[in-house]
Write a protein that binds this DNA or RNA. Structure first.
Length: 115
DNA sequence: ACGTTGACCTATA
DNA sequence: GTATAGGCCAACG
């Protein structure tokens, strides 16, 4: 497994429950900004990983559940998200801006404790 | 091996 | 504000 995918899975696993992030955010965190597509591909491989990867917490920039189709069922992603406490309507995450979890801002080297 | 596609994002018109 | 173009890198046909 390439380190890239491993990092992606590691970041996705560290996403707190009830929170969501975008492919671009992960790609930027890995330093491969612009290669957001690779993150999506990594998610595709996440199903083959023995370690469970909450790919349902990863959505696109618009908060749209574009990858729900790649789950067991098209509604599987919505079920999981609602199970986490995230409201989903029209395949879109409600309050996505508030639920957005940026790995660069959270895990990003500088542990900003100035909260 | 070449061409196309893909769970995307950013920029310009 | 929407629409179109470009970029990115890996997998599939």
């Amino acid at each position: 497994m390439s380190d890239f995918y491993e990092n992606v899975f590691d970041v996705v696993r560290q996403i707190p429950p009830g929170r969501v992030t975008s492919y671009g955010a992960i790609a930027r965190y890995l330093g491969s900004a612009g290669s957001s597509r690779m993150v999506g591909w990594a998610m595709n491989l996440s199903h083959h990983q023995q370690n469970y990867v909450p790919a349902h917490r990863v959505v696109n920039r618009n908060g749209l559940l574009t990858g729900k189709i790649h789950f067991g069922s098209p509604v599987q992603m919505e079920e999981l998200l609602e199970n986490e406490g995230i409201k989903v309507e029209e395949d879109c995450v409600v309050d996505f801006d508030s639920l957005f979890w940026d790995p660069v801002k959270e895990l990003g080297g500088t542990f900003s404790n100035n909260f």
